[in-house]
């Protein structure tokens, strides 16, 4: 009985630690545009990252071409192709670019995927109406950012 209580106590502590390790969008530490540590405190899942490349608020291939995802039609041409992107950038740099590309590239058109303030006429998603005033959710969660980064570091030539 003591043993089981102890276990569940440990589980509670672990959960608390995991939550507190998530870096809030307003507290991300950039060094020359790069972000060293995992935003979620957890490793990313590259297969989830590959999914996010093609869906929801990620939709990276709307603007970037990825040969490894050639089965997905209508890849965009706005940003640079991502083939070999892990040869050109470190994991920390990739995390920084996905989190907020404008830190490294001031005038980048790329949306800032882990940012919650400083917007002009922030809307309520795609309704065209004003944001309701509650907590602003970033385009991607900390874990989704990590998943995308985990996928991007696989793109070597």
């Amino acid at each position: 009985m003591y043993f089981r209580l102890g276990l569940s106590f440990a589980a509670v502590i672990c959960a608390t630690v995991a939550v507190s390790e998530e870096v809030k969008p307003t507290e991300v530490l950039f060094v020359d545009g790069a972000v060293e540590a995992s935003l979620s405190g957890q490793p990313g899942d590259p297969s989830s990252g590959a999914d996010i490349m093609n869906k929801g608020a990620g939709n990276c291939i709307a603007c970037h071409q990825v040969s490894a995802l050639a089965h997905l039609p209508f890849q965009g041409e706005i940003g640079p192709p991502l083939d070999g992107v892990a040869d050109r950038w470190s994991e920390a740099e990739l995390r920084g670019i996905v989190t907020n590309a404008k830190i490294m590239f001031e005038d980048s058109m790329m949306p800032s995927f882990y940012k919650t303030e400083g917007f002009i006429r922030l809307g309520d998603e795609y309704t065209g109406k004003a944001h309701g005033g509650g907590e602003v959710q970033p385009l991607l969660t900390a874990q989704q950012i990590e998943d995308v980064v985990a996928y991007l570091v696989t793109l070597k030539e």
Binding site: P111, S112, G123, L139
Partner: peptide, 25 residues
């Protein structure tokens, strides 16, 4: 030239800087 909304995009981002290219389809 104002970059509106959570995606922070202006008319110019697409229609001046990137016309002629594909954004998704």
């Amino acid at each position: 030239y104002t970059r509106f909304g959570q995606l922070e995009m202006s008319c110019a981002n697409c229609h001046e800087d990137n016309y002629g290219t594909m954004i998704r389809a």
